[in-house]
Structure formats: C-alpha cells, structure tokens
Amino acid sequence: MIEFNDVTKIYGGDVKAIDDISMTVEDGEFVILLGPSGCGKTTLLRMVNQLESISQGDIKIQGQNVREMDKIKMRRNTGYVIQSNGLFPNMTIEDNTMIVPDLLGWDRKKKKDRFNYLMDLVGLNPDDYRKRFPHELSGGQQQRVGVARAMAADPPVMLMDEPFGALDPIIREKVQDEFLAIQKEVKKTILFVSHDIDEAVRMGDKIALLRDGKVQQFDRPSELLIRPNNDFVSDFVGKDRVLRSMSLYSVEDLVTTFGLKNKEDTITDTKEISIDTSLRIAISMLLNQEADQLVIVDRQGQAKGSLTFDLIEKFLHQEVKGA
C-alpha cells in the first residue's frame, strides 16, 4: 500500500510542483498517474523512492514513512522502471536483471533460478539472452528486461515512469498486454506514470489525473471517462470519451442487463462475434455497416441473438446517466 498524505513539493521557494496531494494506492492495485507534461506526475512518482525530496506531508509504503527509511534499502525493495529502460550497457542481460539480488548478496544458484523464472515470465528465453548485452536487443526486448530487473528481488511495490513510452505503437500494445498478464499473476502494487489516456484506460485499475501538481480526479477508468469531475478532465480524456469507455465493457455486460434481440433468420447478411468482444469493437462494427445483423455467440459457439443500436443506447443511458 502507498499512502500520500498532504504531499507537497516546492521548488525554488515558491513554485509548487506538487500541491497538497492525498491519495491511497491499495495493495495489488495498479494506479496510473496521468496528465500533460509538466503536471508533476513524474515528480510525484520520484518522491516515493526519494529521488525527489518531499517538501511537506508524508508518503508511506506499507505503513512506513519513506523519509524515515534508509534510502538505499528502501529503493532495493521497490521496483523502478524508466522510459529509456536504463539498462547498464556494460553489463550482460543476466547481470542487469540480477543487479538488485546481487546488491542484496543472494547466492549464485538463487540468482540463476530467479533469472530463469523472470525471463520466462517476460517471454524471453533465459539461455538465449543470458550472455547478451543491452545494445544487441530491440527496444521491446530491452523494456521487458527492464521490467524483469525491477521485479528481480520481488518487491511489493513497483514504480514505473512511462516504461513503454519509447516503443512504437504496435510493440507497445503487445508489451502492455504482456505486462497486464504478468500483473494478474504477481499482483504488485503499481504506480505507473503515463501521458496517454488510451494506455491509462487499458492498464489502470484506477487513474489519478493531474494538472499543475493537483489531482483533478482519482477514479476507476470508466468513471473518469463517463463522469468527468470538471472541464479539464473531460477535455483531457477527449470528446470521444464515452466511446473510449466502451472498451472497458464486453458485450456480455450488456447482455446480462438487457438481453439481446431475437435473431432474424430472414436477414442473410449476418456476422457473428463472440460475447467477450469489447463493446467498443461491437459498436464500431455496427457503424461500419459490416453486416445487416450482428449475431452474438456465447463461449460454446451458440448464437444468443442479435445486437442493435437501441440496445446499446439503453446500455449507455444506464451507464452514463446512471438511470
């Protein structure tokens, strides 16, 4: 758990980079610090592991005040990933990954086992990469190693500063998915800086949207999209915020409340999609006029009925208006 109590950061006597932030990241929760550049999100992250000092207020990790902890020990027990991966060019992938266990004095056998486990976890073959150097790897591979390194000593808390920001969009999405799968398995408490609303919505259990060092809204992604607190939030998440929010629901969410229309056998131009499909994709398919009838099939491959615009409208009405 990470607790922020009235945290403030003042530069040069009067510039408030962080202005009285209080929030709590629960155990195993994945929280995104989102905002435009200069909003203070990276500063706030770096205050947690004391790379930036705290001017006022307290930050506690697992109930312990970070200011009272030994900086070196605390950082070794906190995973840290940065955008440009920060791998050490002079060290092999194994040495890079095992740097924290090395500092902690683990024995060779334990380090080797841990390296093999972590490489498997991030989807790289341990033996292929053990003796290679960072510059021999692609950006995506380097970033996976960066993630593995941060998890090396199994820290409960991970701090990630735009870790996937430098990757090209296709690789980024793949690495994001992989990381979500890893997170499902390891359940770390994660604070993750991003400036990308799509990434935030995709990855976060909760999003803290910052502006000028203040939290504008701290909520679940769907709440942020559907019920923005103020104009800044709604501008930041974009005019298509409701459409975006539909990616957080599956067709099944709609089916459980409203059911489906009966499938009309007279219409021959039909297309079948799975009940797991996100609502955003389903709506796009309707808009694309890909077929006259969109038939929803369950996991057993049974046709459940057809999806229409008025069902989606009802669903939106319920979710957005809260009726």
């Binding site: 950082r75 940065i82 920060g86 050490f88 002079n90 060290m91 740097i99 500092l103």
Partner: peptide, 27 residues
C-alpha cells in the same frame, strides 16, 4: 554517462560508490 543510466542506478538502490564502480567508471 547517460543520465538515465545514472538515474536507474540510483533508483535501484546503489550507493554512490557502487554507482561509480559498477556503472559510471566502466561506461
């Protein structure tokens, strides 16, 4: 030495001396 590398070394929990001998001087 790339400031990102130095930042990573610090954030990982290296002491100033370890940073120097393991990262900065070799590079």
């Amino acid at each position: 030495v790339d400031p990102n590398i130095r930042d990573a070394a610090k954030g990982i929990g290296m002491t100033t001396f370890q940073r120097l001998t393991k990262v900065e001087i070799p590079n």
